[in-house]
């Protein structure tokens, strides 16, 4: 339990900074909405006629940017990227920082098992990710509602944020799994970020080229896209199962490898 509070405190400053970033992002992103909405009446039909690759280049995809919800859908991609960066950095550092800061000996000679250490660390990380998600939800719901003049979008946004939470969990546990697996504490952050950037770029490339659509199973950024969640069939079951298994595998690897990890001192 001490470990839990210690971790919460250690991460509180960066969490506050991230939350401020999210608030600014949502507020400044949506404030641009006013300018676009006045001229977007005819966008919808035109967008439908446009080839998929071009839609991607235009940056809007098949979202209708003349409505607050559609505009938020574009913004949401970047919120997801922010959530994923936060989660993967958090996951990889919360495990590897003890080695980096040479505090691992101090920690591991305490009378608690390694399983307990990793469990409390994971719970602390989960709380961080959850707070991040809730702040995103509250700021999004408030700001979008301010610009929205149709039916309430709270339900849609909640569903999107549920998707984002799953994405955050995937990257959080990816980070902890890599940090537990790697011998070099400095490499953990770079490797998980490399994977993050790789999957993000892959999702963009899939947008451009429809012929490699099947690769979408490889990148979590494609699992819960705004256009599908808000204006399609909601959260996709296939992707939910896929995410759950990813989370489970990463968790399993984290526990398994942390227990036998040879700490770099």
């Amino acid at each position: 339990m001490n470990l839990f509070f210690r971790e919460l405190k250690a991460n509180s400053k960066s969490l506050i900074l991230w939350c401020i970033g999210i608030l600014l992002m949502v507020a400044s992103g949506m404030s641009k909405f006013g300018g676009v909405s006045s001229s977007g009446q005819s966008m919808n039909e035109l967008m439908k006629a446009m080839p998929k690759a071009l839609q991607a280049i235009m940056g809007t995809g098949s979202l209708d940017i003349s409505t607050a919800g559609g505009y938020y859908g574009i913004l949401f991609l970047y919120l997801m990227v922010m959530g994923a960066i936060h989660a993967s950095m958090l996951g990889s550092t919360i495990v590897s920082k003890e080695e980096r800061d040479k505090t691992v000996e101090f920690l591991l000679v305490k009378p608690i098992s390694r399983n307990k250490v990793i469990t409390w660390k994971l719970i602390a990380a989960l709380v961080n990710v959850l707070i991040f998600n809730i702040v995103t939800f509250i700021s999004s719901a408030t700001v979008v509602e301010y610009y929205n003049d149709g039916i309430s979008l709270h339900g849609d946004i909640a569903l999107l944020l549920a998707g984002m939470f799953i994405l955050q969990l995937i990257f959080l546990f990816l980070g902890t799994a890599i940090a537990s697996a790697t011998m070099n504490p400095k490499a953990a952050g770079s490797v998980s970020t490399a994977i993050l950037m790789g999957t993000f770029l892959l999702s963009i490339i899939i947008d451009i080229s429809s012929s490699i659509d099947f690769l979408k199973y490889l990148t979590p950024f494609k699992y819960f896209e705004a256009k599908q969640v808000m204006f399609g069939e909601g959260l996709d079951v296939v992707f939910l199962i896929l995410s759950a298994s990813f989370i489970f595998i990463f968790l399993f690897v984290t526990y398994k490898l942390y227990k036998v990890k040879d700490m770099a001192v």
């Binding site: 676009v36 001229s39 966008m43 809007t60 940017i65």
Partner: peptide, 8 residues
């Protein structure tokens, strides 16, 4: 419309 073109 012009603003949309600019937007992208």
């Amino acid at each position: 419309p012009e603003p949309v073109r600019k937007a992208v």
